[in-house]
Computed example of a mutant assay.
Amino acid sequence: MLVRPLSYPDPALSDRRIGLRMWREADIDCIRLAGTDPRIPKGTTVPANFTQAGGLAFIHRQWARLENGEGVSQAIVDVDDDRAVGLLWVALRPQPRVCGLGYWVIPSARRQGVATAAVRLAVPWALETLDLQRLEAWVEPDNLASQHVLTSVGFQLEGRLRNFLTDGRRPADALVFSVLPSNR
């Protein structure tokens, strides 16, 4: 249970290049593009076979996460044109004052610091506004780009959870990274 209630950041988070905001139905092309990378649908609810209805259902699920008390899912946007290029979500964990962090970026927006900027925006907001004692991320060992994002923002590698993640076909290990308020 959180000490403070879940809500979207107000004002929306931005570094004047990258921003985080509530998903909009107009962001549907971002969902289509995310589905073109096999890794994103494998580990998320992004539809692998895009349809308009499936893309809209994905966006509606993101809104429901806040309403259901699961967490806060936000679109990562390019501030210049407000175009969604990814997702960042802070998920409640069963432990009090602990949340998980997840994110993805569409293939055409990678290697431009988008994920790093989005995580950098989200971490202080999550730790302070949600009054967290811990924010953690689980990453597959071969996802070196995500590991780099996390360590560059101050997350520390804690260990490996063997056979922890499942992609529907096989179990996979997860590396556990975390950041604490005292690390900031």
Rank of each mutant, 00 (worst) to 15 (best):
S178W: 04
V179R: 07
L157A: 06
A115E: 05
N49F: 14
P11Y: 11
P94F: 08
L135I: 06
R21V: 02
R61V: 04
G159T: 05
R39G: 14
P124M: 06
R4E: 09
R61Q: 09
L87H: 01
E70G: 10
G19A: 14
K42A: 13
E140A: 11
I106C: 12
R170E: 07
G100I: 11
G54C: 05
V123L: 07
I59Y: 14
I18N: 10
R169K: 14
D29E: 11
A91Y: 05
N49L: 09
A126P: 01
G43Y: 08
W23H: 14
P94Y: 09
I106V: 15
P9Y: 02
Q74D: 02
Q95P: 06
I76H: 01
D167F: 10
V85Y: 03
G19F: 04
G54Q: 04
I28E: 05
R83K: 09
S108I: 11
T51E: 07
L6K: 08
A91V: 00
V3Q: 13
R83S: 06
D78T: 11
S7W: 09
R184W: 08
R24Y: 02
L88I: 14
E70V: 00
V119C: 11
Y103R: 04
A26V: 04
R61L: 13
A126V: 03
P41Y: 12
P38Y: 11
W89I: 13
L6M: 03
G100L: 04
A12M: 12
V153I: 02
N143L: 15
V3P: 13
V149K: 10
A91N: 12
D80R: 15
A48R: 14
V105C: 07
I76W: 03
V46C: 08
C30R: 05
R169G: 15
M1H: 03
H148S: 14
A53W: 02
G19T: 01
V119A: 09
L88E: 07
D78G: 15
L157V: 02
Q95H: 15
C99P: 01
P9I: 00
R39K: 15
E128M: 12
A64C: 10
L88M: 13
F164L: 05
R83L: 07
K42P: 02
Q112P: 12
A12Q: 05
I18W: 10
T116K: 13
S7L: 13
P171Q: 13
A84M: 13
D27Y: 06
C30L: 04
D82M: 08
L127A: 01
L127H: 01
G168N: 03
G35V: 07
R4H: 09
S182N: 07
L33C: 08
D29G: 06
W138R: 15
W104T: 00
P9M: 08
R61H: 13
E128D: 12
V72Q: 08
V85H: 07
V123I: 06
A12T: 08
F155H: 01
L157H: 02
P124Y: 00
R16N: 15
N68T: 06
A145D: 12
Q74L: 12
